[in-house]
Design a binder for these strands. Sequence first.
DNA 1: CTGAAAGCGCTTACAG
DNA 2: CTGAAAGCGCTTACAG
Lengths: 343, 343
Amino acid sequence: MTKRVTIKDIAKECGVSITTVSRILNKKPGCCTPETEKRVMEAVERAHYRPNPAARSLVTKETNIIGVILPDIYNYFFQEFFKGAEDYLGKKGYKLILCNTDGKAKKENEFLESLTQGMVDGIMITTGNCSENNDYIVKLSEGGFPIVTVERYGDDLEQIPGVLFDNKKAMCMAVRRLYEYGHRRIAFITGPANAANAVLRLEGYKQGLKEAGIKYEKALVCAGDYQMTSGYKSIKKLISEQEFTAVIASNDQMAVGACKAIRDSGKSVPDDISVIGFDGTMLAELYQPALYTIELHGYDMGKVSAENLLKLIKGKEAGEKKVIFEPVIKEGSSIRDITDMTL
Amino acid sequence: MTKRVTIKDIAKECGVSITTVSRILNKKPGCCTPETEKRVMEAVERAHYRPNPAARSLVTKETNIIGVILPDIYNYFFQEFFKGAEDYLGKKGYKLILCNTDGKAKKENEFLESLTQGMVDGIMITTGNCSENNDYIVKLSEGGFPIVTVERYGDDLEQIPGVLFDNKKAMCMAVRRLYEYGHRRIAFITGPANAANAVLRLEGYKQGLKEAGIKYEKALVCAGDYQMTSGYKSIKKLISEQEFTAVIASNDQMAVGACKAIRDSGKSVPDDISVIGFDGTMLAELYQPALYTIELHGYDMGKVSAENLLKLIKGKEAGEKKVIFEPVIKEGSSIRDITDMTL
DNA sequence: CTGAAAGCGCTTACAG
DNA sequence: CTGAAAGCGCTTACAG
């Protein structure tokens, strides 16, 4: 690395103390005459000088870096979330470290440990797509470390600011729509068995059935893991074993996999089988036929999380402890009204 | 924030000097008796102590953070690239700051400036999806700052390690395949007009036509910008103006847009019009019909970039200055052999 | 309006 | 095998 310019160099060149240079750089009001300021700023420009972040953060205890822990960068929801957070925090002078856990609880904890001791000013941690352990999060939060959660559930998280999504309601809406369209045998693809939001989605499905007066049949529920392949495999299998006219997947990726399986089995979406996804990703939009799905507001969730985290960092209370996003249906062409056939 | 444990606390608790604690933490061989080491490590464990990164980096001049500058996090290629880099660098103890430029050269430079003065140990910068200015990159590299490029072109970049892709050859392969399948009127959707790799892809298309003995027609070339919408719009328009049996898009996203436009115009892929994409993304795989496309090896490019950057950081020369990835065709069902019809 | 000095929490010669 | 001390490059009371 080339020899670094330090605050000393600037001070010497301008014939002032480093204190003065520091003050000017940090825009302390009325700390010096306009002439001094101008002279210093010019020297700074000339040398392309920037304060050393490590030195600064050693005394201010701030790094201007935020950690974002998420399970799957290939999932459009997390991309949207990250983008929403980055757009907001970037404007405020923060940089984001992206930590990918691949859905492994162990990696979550490793990241949490390595980030928290002075590396970042705060952390946003999303659902882990796995059985989640929130102990460390709670400990950090109670210790005063700024941390917010996204789509994470648990009684222990009650006091920690988080953004959530009304998964149950969303699934009820999906079931109801299919019911209105005449569907009675509705299959379901779950997310990872232990993931909290996957459990909620399954519960929503059950509740939706109940409200519609449809009996819940375990045989129509397939175990997925949020990956496309699991949607494909499970529906490929189910199609040979069960009769059903519709399937709801716990996310868009699995819905796409399901569509592929349906086609590969010589059937058509939505003529033979209707498909509903979940997440409202770009995938849903561009898929053929466009997927009927539930909008999850990833970008806004990222923005709101960022706002709340920033409040925490600035020592203010985050607005509400929990912000719950409401499901919005994103229309598509992957479901069919079969009421005429039922009659 | 809760009161931080420092090296002093550990030293005091163990009745040794901070020097000794530091040595043990940094695994200096044979710096002390096994007993001392054990005692210290236990105290470290008990207190969950981790050295303050800022303090450490102030003296070592290392931050163990890498900056990754890319134009579009929604593009699967860059996700793969990032993942490849993160998997490799994560194992080596590095964290990655992700900087999204939205295809704006100005943001590239801002990130470059804010990252380089002590914030990161090195930078990986990809193609900008825009007219690129490499001056700052060259200046940094000449000043000894570790930086590697990805899919960036320019004579001024000659001395800077980079991974590239043989765009021209790839497009020649695409044209040849269509030619072999009997296509003679082959449309083309470009990337952003000033993006270097978009220019290369267009050149490859032209060269491919030449080799096949097909006359280049400007009217068959549409201006795209790597976004799906541009693929849709341009083909929607072209279809009403020109006769063509095939279209090559400069990336998968635009290819998908093109497919949609073709369908919306009442035609079929590939029965009426064949489509070839570029990037070999997941998108191509799951699209219906699966896109015929060119594999770009995003993950490996990320890994190789990371390796080279690490060598630079460690003061070693990067292997070769340029690593060029070879195109590999990824078969799909979006093109049709029409030789029988041409006869 | 300005500066000298302390101190943030580490690592690393230097000395023993 | 171990420690005292200097120093990394800043910010911030404190004093004038």
